[in-house]
Amino acid sequence: MSNALGGHGGSADVSSAGSNIAPSPAGPATSGPTATRKPSAEGTREPAPAGSVVPKVSDPPLPKSAKERVAAARSLAAKHGAKLMHPVEPKNVPSAMSEAAANAKVTVVGSAKSGTTMRIVTARGDLTGQRELASVAGDVIPVGPVSCSQRFKFANEEKPAVRKNLLVCWRTAAQRSVVVLTADVHGKPSRHDTVETVNKQWSKLG
């Protein structure tokens, strides 16, 4: 058997082959599978190439004064085609009436879900031409001592127009005032209910 193996050069081939196998390069010892680093929950950012300049991104500074901020907002609105509106404001109102408007009590009843809301404003003073009444633009209909209208002008740039979904009714005097603004999504605010609310609130003010 040994001669047969030797005749084929089996022993010499195995030993020489073993001596020709290059040892594997030594690497760092690890106790388990190679660990991979996972990105954090906040995410990771690829490092910038060496020598490159990364631009700094920051929000533009806000204007310092309120006047500058208003001017910046108007400029942005004009740039995007938004029309600037100026609300209608009371003019030449005596200080006593202004004080009554500032101290008025406001209550809202109803809900958008129901489709109808009433904004009830009561004051110990005269609200003529103020608050909700500053937007009334004619077509006043008297209902006893109460007045009602559906014609409004909410901004100086607008033309007076009838708002089918809005109705305002009011009663004012030097010592007390009641204003009720009714909004109805179906375009049918009840004059009866609005006038009735004005009269009830007027009686409560005594």
Rank of each mutant, 00 (worst) to 15 (best):
E99V: 09
A100E: 01
N103D: 08
K105S: 11
T107F: 03
T107H: 04
V109R: 10
V109Q: 09
G110Y: 01
G110V: 02
S111T: 05
S111R: 03
A112S: 08
A112Q: 08
K113T: 12
K113V: 14
G115S: 02
T117W: 02
M118F: 03
R119F: 01
A123W: 00
G125S: 10
L127N: 07
T128K: 15
Q130V: 13
R131I: 15
S135I: 12
S135N: 13
S135C: 12
V136H: 11
A137S: 14
A137L: 11
V140M: 10
I141A: 15
G144I: 10
G144E: 04
G144C: 05
P145T: 02
V146P: 04
V146I: 07
V146T: 02
V146N: 01
S149H: 03
Q150E: 04
Q150T: 03
R151T: 15
R151D: 10
R151Y: 13
F152A: 06
N156L: 15
N156H: 09
E157I: 01
E158Y: 04
K159T: 15
P160L: 12
R163K: 15
K164M: 14
K164T: 15
N165C: 13
N165W: 07
N165D: 15
L167N: 00
L167K: 01
V168K: 00
T172A: 13
T172Q: 09
A173K: 06
A174I: 15
Q175G: 11
R176N: 06
S177R: 10
S177E: 08
S177M: 11
V178C: 04
V178P: 01
V178S: 00
V178G: 00
V179D: 04
V180W: 06
L181T: 11
L181F: 08
T182D: 00
D184N: 14
V185E: 10
V185H: 13
H186I: 08
